[in-house]
Deep mutational scan, measured.
Amino acid sequence: MGFKLLSKLLVYLTASIMAIASPLAFSVDSSGEYPTVSEIPVGEVRLYQIADGVWSHIATQSFDGAVYPSNGLIVRDGDELLLIDTAWGAKNTAALLAEIEKQIGLPVTRAVSTHFHDDRVGGVDVLRAAGVATYASPSTRRLAEVEGNEIPTHSLEGLSSSGDAVRFGPVELFYPGAAHSTDNLIVYVPSASVLYGGCAIYELSRTSAGNVADADLAEWPTSIERIQQHYPEAQFVIPGHGLPGGLDLLKHTTNVVKAHTNRSVVE
Score class of each variant (00 low, 15 high):
Arg76Leu: 11
Ala95Tyr: 15
Leu10Asn: 14
Gly245Pro: 02
Ala21Gln: 14
Glu157Asn: 14
Leu47Tyr: 02
Glu80Gly: 09
Ala21Trp: 09
Asn92Phe: 00
Asp214Phe: 05
Ser205Val: 08
Thr14Ala: 07
Asp214Gly: 10
Pro138Trp: 07
Ile151Glu: 05
Leu96Trp: 00
Glu225Asn: 13
Ala87Ile: 00
Arg142Lys: 14
Gly197Asp: 05
Ser22Asn: 09
Gly2Leu: 11
Gln228Ser: 14
Thr253Leu: 00
Ser264Val: 10
Leu195Met: 07
Gly78Trp: 06
Thr140His: 02
Thr36Arg: 11
Ser205Gln: 07
His252Asn: 11
His117Gly: 00
Thr140Pro: 02
Ile151Pro: 03
Val257Thr: 07
Gln228Glu: 12
Glu145Met: 13
Asp183Met: 01
Ser139Trp: 11
Thr261Trp: 09
Ile227Lys: 03
Ile238Gln: 01
Arg76Thr: 09
Ala218Cys: 06
Val265Gln: 12
Ser205Glu: 14
Tyr34Asp: 12
Ser223Trp: 01
Leu156His: 04
Gly32Thr: 07
His180Thr: 01
Pro152Tyr: 00
Glu99Met: 13
Ser205Leu: 09
Arg46Glu: 09
Ile186Asp: 00
Ile50Cys: 00
Met18Gly: 14
Asp52Gln: 10
Pro107His: 09
Glu145Ile: 09
Ile238Lys: 02
Asn149His: 13
Thr93Phe: 02
Gln61Ser: 08
Ile104Cys: 00
Leu97Asn: 00
Leu24Cys: 07
Pro176Glu: 00
Asp125Tyr: 10
Ala144Cys: 12
Arg76Met: 11
Val112Ile: 09
Pro244Lys: 04
Gly245Lys: 02
Ser161Asp: 13
Glu44Asp: 09
Ile224Trp: 02
Pro107Val: 13
Ser208Trp: 08
Leu73Gly: 02
Gly158Asp: 10
Ser193Asn: 12
Thr93Cys: 00
Gly89Ala: 02
Ala59Thr: 08
Pro176Ser: 04
Pro69Gln: 14
Ser191Pro: 06
Asn92Gly: 06
Asp183Ile: 02
Ile201Thr: 07
Leu127Phe: 05
Ser56Asp: 10
Ala59Glu: 08
Gly242Asn: 03
Pro138Tyr: 09
Leu10Pro: 13
Ala178Phe: 07
Pro232Ser: 10
Ser113Gly: 06
Gln228Gly: 10
Glu233Lys: 12
Ser70Cys: 02
Leu6Thr: 06
Ser161Ala: 13
Ser139Tyr: 09
Arg206Met: 15
Val124Ser: 07
Gly242Pro: 05
Gly163Val: 07
Leu81Thr: 06
Leu81Trp: 02
Leu5Cys: 10
Gln228Lys: 11
Leu106Lys: 14
Glu147Ile: 10
Val112Phe: 06
His154Gln: 11
Pro23Val: 10
Ile40Arg: 14
Pro244Trp: 12
His154Met: 13
Ser30Val: 13
Leu204Glu: 15
Glu233Asn: 12
His180Glu: 01
Lys258Met: 11
His260Glu: 13
Tyr231Gly: 00
Cys199Met: 00
Val194Asp: 01
Ser160Pro: 08
Glu233Ile: 11
Ser223Asn: 01
Asp85Glu: 03
Tyr188His: 06
Lys91Ile: 14
Ser193Lys: 13
Tyr68Arg: 03
Ile100Asn: 03
Gly163Phe: 06
Leu243Asp: 15
Pro23Cys: 13
Val54Asn: 01
Phe116Glu: 04
Pro232Lys: 14
Lys251Phe: 11
Pro170Asn: 15
Ile224Arg: 01
Gln61Arg: 15
